[in-house]
Design a protein around this nucleic acid. Sequence first.
DNA 1: ACGTTTATTCGATATTAATCGAACAATTTG
DNA 2: CAAATTGTTCGATTAATATCGAATAAACGT
Lengths: 99, 99
Amino acid sequence: MRSLKHPRAEDLILSDVLRALGDPVRLEIVRMAEGCDGLPCNAFLEAIPKSTASHHWRVLREAGVIRQVPEGTSRRNFLRREDLEARFPGLLDAVLGSG
Amino acid sequence: MRSLKHPRAEDLILSDVLRALGDPVRLEIVRMAEGCDGLPCNAFLEAIPKSTASHHWRVLREAGVIRQVPEGTSRRNFLRREDLEARFPGLLDAVLGSG
DNA sequence: ACGTTTATTCGATATTAATCGAACAATTTG
DNA sequence: CAAATTGTTCGATTAATATCGAATAAACGT
């Protein structure tokens, strides 16, 4: 369960980030992740099945929106605020700040 | 060729806007539209076929990113800056400002 | 009316993406 | 080692999207 590939900050691609965020479910995930650093992947397992959630976490990770850190059998999810800010200044704030 | 449906500013949906922008071709269109108010739809017809371009303009229009104003047999395309700014402050600038 | 210009719509195809159950993998704990 | 916990991967299905040529439509000029 190791080997989680994360793109480097300087390799983030804007259209990939926007597409990752351009899905209602993932937008919900990201909003939930805001202010909840270290959120586990099953954060809202009553709402959607494990495999679906896993898929969305993966899309977010591969786009560089979140970073996943294994911890036991679980893993903690972090928004890549600094990396996103460095590459696309103001973007994450704009996305999170909007109702 | 009339009846171009545009969503109202207050009805813009963030995930729709992000998905519209989350495509390399459309991002290119929007970047080109920046500073080129009134761009016609065939702005870069050497690059992509008419029908494909029309499709992308439509996605952008229906998401509320651009406004299309008929003018003769053509139509002028405008970024909906104010509307986007009112609904999602900082978003468009962040998208356009990033390399 | 006719042709030209500009753009949309249709139809078909191909690709990508979302969903979710079942099986599997990795880690921790007893 | 066995069981429990947490996620991933597989496989299948369904839905959405991208692409583009050909036909169509609308507005304009002559």
